[in-house]
Amino acid sequence: MTGKLEVLRPGPFATIQDLGRPGLAALGVGRSGAADRGSLRLANRLVGNPEDNAVVEATLGGLAVRFTGHAVVAVTGAACAIRVAGRAGWPDAPIPVRPGDEVELAAPERGLRSYLAVRGGIDVPPVLRARATDTLANLGPPALSPGTTLPIGDRTRAYPGVDLAPRPSIPDEPVLRVTPGPRRDWFTGDALATLVSAPHEVTAESNRVGIRLDGPRLRRRRTGELPPEACVPGALQVPPAGQPILFLADHPVTGGYPVVAVVEEDDLDLAAQVRPGQRVRFAV
């Protein structure tokens, strides 16, 4: 079953991701890992992997890889047309692959990030016990480029006995639930009401670190600088201009802008699938 996977085209941006490096924030190392963790877990389960095996996280599709041996793959996350040696393949289902087969992911119609898991996992050398690429801290393997060859490992479990695991499609205007952040008192009393009052547009300045939003401006009650303090994924940090940044997988470990609210961790997988230009709503 083991063999190699050659990257023919990485698409706009593709990295290796797993469940990241939890527990090292006190040393300045963030968790990183898949932006949509649920999709990573599902992709691994579908091919009979432990949930934390490393997979490819493709941004806006466009990924093409070739396998040197027999393999079983699954594609989850943003649903896209899949071609295996020219034949159509289903998302959210295990797909057998033969030696020399090309697997291509088209651009998804909805959503941003698709996950390609291969049975056995991608076996690049771990850094601090994880294979995830942390794009902010520069840890882990470099982003995929044409010609990158990735070894396939042998960490497997039994097959799940599932042929298809359909998931709901990403809504046009996702709703992200928030709870109060630690520095709500740096803002005027109506800040949370303002935050939920109107949709926010996801701007093009968004990546694995965070989503820069454009919506109703949040006003500060306090000015001045906040000494750096630890951040969590989902934190809505607000620079002085008043437009929040939603922190995703590769967020900085500490930040110096006040956090007004925090998106529930259960909703972060959805947040990671929202495209630039799309709108989101927040709900308390």
């Binding site: 939890p22 527990g23 924030a25 006190a26 000494p227 750096p228 303090e229 630890a230 969590v232 470990v253 500490t254």
Partner: peptide, 11 residues
């Protein structure tokens, strides 16, 4: 599950 010190805070 995790402690993260910073300048004047502990998460």
């Amino acid at each position: 599950v995790e402690l993260v010190p910073a300048a004047r805070t502990l998460l």
